Amino acid sequence: MTGGSRPRRTSQRADARRPCPCGLPAVYDECCGRFHAGRAAPTAEALMRSRFTAFAVEDEAYLLRTWHPTTRPARVEFERGMRWTGLEVEEVSGGSLVHTEGTVTFRARYTFRGRPGELREKSRFTRDQGAWTYLDAVHAG
């Protein structure tokens, strides 16, 4: 999930009382919203979920802040007409409180201009100055 072709610098802020887009059974503020507000994600999976949510609400600042400096783009571009609608984590390897690297394989559902679609990705994460960061991904379909 590296963005599309249309830059947008302001976020579409999620409703704090609605379920979090990442799919966990919590409201946005108690789930990914706390990471978007500045708290560090404790695991690679938590970072991946919060980044999915950042794509859903178009929070460019968070995406850039949590991208490893060696692979971070100058900006994140959001595809006009794209709406992220669901997330399923398939596999997690490493990425816990005691690890320095981890991978998360997931399926992200979306609609693009009214048509449903799915992205399957294996994302790699690493710690940078103690904090989890997104390094890169292998798209799996």
Rank of each mutant, 00 (worst) to 15 (best):
R39H: 10
V92T: 05
R115I: 05
A140M: 05
R39A: 04
R39P: 04
E58T: 11
G86A: 10
T66L: 03
E60R: 10
G114R: 07
F106K: 04
R39L: 07
R9E: 07
H68V: 06
F125M: 05
L119H: 09
H99K: 11
T103I: 00
L97R: 13
M1V: 08
R109N: 10
R51G: 01
D29M: 06
E90F: 12
D15C: 15
E118V: 11
W67R: 04
F35Q: 04
L97C: 05
T53Q: 08
A41Q: 10
L119W: 09
Y62N: 03
Y134Q: 05
G33S: 02
T100H: 06
R120N: 04
E30V: 14
S50E: 09
V57D: 05
A41W: 06
F112V: 07
S5R: 04
E60Q: 10
G81E: 13
R9I: 00
S5Y: 02
M48N: 10
R113W: 14
A40P: 00
E45C: 12
P69G: 11
L135A: 03
L47W: 05
P116A: 01
P7Q: 07
F106L: 15
L87E: 09
P42A: 04
W67N: 01
F52K: 08
V27F: 12
T66R: 02
E77V: 13
F52D: 02
A137F: 07
L47E: 01
V27Y: 12
L119S: 06
H99I: 01
